[in-house]
Simulated assay, not measured.
Amino acid sequence: MTDSFQKRLNFDGNIDEVIERAANNYSLGNLKHSELMTVGLQDYNLHIITNQGEYVIKVFSKLRNVENIRRYVEIIKAALNAGVHHPSMLKDMKGEFIHTDEPSGLSMIVLEYIRGKTFYDMDRAPNSKELKLIAAETVKINKIKFKPSYLFDSWAVPNIHWMYKQVNKFLDDEGKNLAKTALSWYEALPIKLLPTCFVQGDIIKTNVVLGENSQIYIIDFAVSNIYPRVQELAVMSSNLMDNKKAPLLRRVERVKQAYLAAGGELTEVELKSLYNYAVCAVAMEFMGSYHERYVIGETADEISYWMQLGRQGLKEGLGEK
């Protein structure tokens, strides 16, 4: 498992030595324990415990260049400045958030470790009280004025045609028919009339932490972009709120009501488009998992989870209206 994750770094050296140097450069104290965090795609995340506390070292993937890493850090800073509940970032001995380990060439940041569990870990959807808290964080996020440079996110709904071209040869007949139907639904959406804003873009079960203090934390802003506002709510409806029982139509309604109650705004066009956009988000979850498995070669356990969840959700979603 560790070896497959280490391939993300294009590094075959001793990762333990990198961790030791990171603990020293960020003045984290004496290292007592480190553990690979296996949930999440692309980067190499480590939970470490020292005599001073608990931290997360995020070692950036070989796929991220310097500009992309800086973009990531600027987005986290913007989110924290907006009051979003996100783990705080630590500075190294030079006063920088980003540290490059010279012997290995690996770049990283260090975050506080939040004691708690993601909804993926708990294998459930948020309850009404938790959804209320998540919606409040989502409204804060969507009001962020920071405009990051555009980053192509293969999982985002606006890239649905690109994704289909990438994975159609790996889909069975049922999968192709489901994907093509979702494409037709996307083409019918009034995309140019949908208001855009800053979106986290990935408020899914793996990226929402319920702390032991009952606080909600939104993590992983790697794919944040300026997108249609409904992108945020569609992803929440399709993934975060899936509990294997409630139909997508009901989940969309719950997310919409919680968002509005938290002070969010939605136009009439958005209200009419949200369900169809959410179905397209399910389609991206379905096709995106195939892309990770068969095009990129990702073997993380959660890929199988997304494949199954996406197919079933798409079959149900397309049949609800």
Rank of each mutant, 00 (worst) to 15 (best):
E320D: 14
G13K: 08
V209Q: 09
F170M: 02
V255K: 02
N81A: 13
E74I: 01
E187H: 08
K58Q: 03
E74F: 14
Y55K: 02
F60T: 00
K143C: 04
L274A: 08
G263I: 09
L36P: 03
K32D: 01
P148F: 09
N65M: 08
K315I: 14
L46S: 05
D301I: 12
I218F: 00
V84C: 09
K165F: 12
T181P: 05
L274W: 08
E112H: 12
K94H: 10
S289L: 07
S273C: 08
K147W: 06
E35R: 08
K165A: 09
I144M: 09
R251H: 03
Y290K: 03
A78D: 03
I69S: 02
E174W: 02
E302K: 09
D3K: 15
S224E: 11
M163S: 01
I191Q: 13
I218M: 00
D101A: 04
N24V: 14
S273A: 15
Y44R: 10
G83F: 09
I134Q: 01
D172C: 12
E265R: 07
P247C: 05
P195Q: 08
Y55F: 14
V282I: 11
A79Y: 11
G317Y: 05
K169I: 13
I49K: 15
E292R: 14
T38I: 13
F119N: 02
G310K: 00
G310V: 01
S289Q: 04
I69K: 12
T267H: 10
Q42H: 13
E102Q: 14
E270K: 05
N142H: 06
W185Y: 15
L271C: 10
A78M: 01
Y55N: 02
K62I: 11
E253S: 12
A136P: 01
N24P: 08
W185P: 06
N24E: 15
A283Q: 02
G29S: 11
K143T: 10
L189P: 04
A22P: 00
L266G: 09
L183C: 08
D101F: 02
A261K: 10
D172W: 05
S238R: 01
K91S: 09
L111C: 05
N225C: 06
L233T: 00
I49D: 09
F119Q: 00
L28Q: 01
Q231H: 13
R250K: 15
P247T: 04
L9E: 06
R311C: 06
N159V: 07
L41K: 12
L80Q: 13
F170Q: 01
N30I: 15
A262F: 07
T50Q: 00
N159L: 13
L309W: 07
F5R: 08
E17N: 12
I15F: 11
N276K: 14
N276L: 14
T299C: 07
N177F: 11
D101S: 05
K58W: 01
